[in-house]
């Protein structure tokens, strides 16, 4: 587990792409073809319907970040890339998890979920499905704390991020197209 902002192996790239069929496949196959590792990936349309935003957490141990962004820029449908420093950005991830929770454990699980500002979204005979969002590291913590109860199924979205609205330092560093 890592402290936010100190994880140098992972970098978050926010890639603005044309909102067209096949663009995600182009990005994904570029990573595969060049041997770059994706740690997590989330895609969604943006406020402008012509574009989508892909938030990619890349494993920079697999290649220098600069080479990754330069190769991404070569994709005709990639419009803009910004690199988000975890220290200067708001990162969120959503987790759905089904936990074993029979009568004896149920209240403990609910207490824990409340503590992390999660919600119970489904109740079964001796299982609960809960939804929790937050900083990725916090979700790691929840996951670790729920594990002893017995995790039946777990699904995380991969992180999305936006720059922090700070007054001084510009937090979103645009990655220039060329050196």
């Amino acid at each position: 587990m890592t402290v936010p902002g100190t994880d140098v192996r992972h970098h978050t790239l926010v890639v603005l792409v044309e909102n067209k069929a096949g663009v995600l496949a182009r990005v994904a196959s570029l990573f595969a073809r060049r041997g770059f590792n994706i740690f997590s990936l989330a895609v969604a349309p943006t406020e402008d319907e012509r574009f989508s935003r892909i938030t990619i957490v890349v494993d920079v141990a697999s290649a220098p970040l600069e080479q990754i962004t330069k190769q991404l820029y070569k994709l005709v449908n990639v419009v803009k890339i910004s690199e988000l420093d975890p220290r200067d950005s708001v990162e969120r991830e959503l987790m759905l998890v089904t936990v074993r929770a029979d009568v004896t454990a149920r209240s403990q699980v609910i207490e824990l979920v409340n503590l992390f500002e999660g919600r119970v979204v489904d109740v079964g005979h001796d299982e609960l499905t809960v939804s929790i969002d937050g900083e990725p590291d916090r979700l790691d913590d929840v996951e670790a704390l729920l594990r002893p109860f017995g995790i039946v199924e777990l699904q995380r979205t991969g992180r999305v991020a936006l720059p922090k609205l700070e007054h001084d330092a510009p937090s979103l560093r645009p990655v220039r197209r060329s050196a």
């Binding site: 220098p64 600069e66 080479q67 330069k70 190769q71 820029y73 070569k74 197209r177 060329s178 050196a179």
Partner: peptide
């Protein structure tokens, strides 16, 4: 631009 620094780091890169 992706060729600059891909194999050898240039002292003066020019795109």
């Amino acid at each position: 631009p992706a060729e600059l620094g891909k194999v050898r780091q240039p002292d003066v890169p020019i795109v």
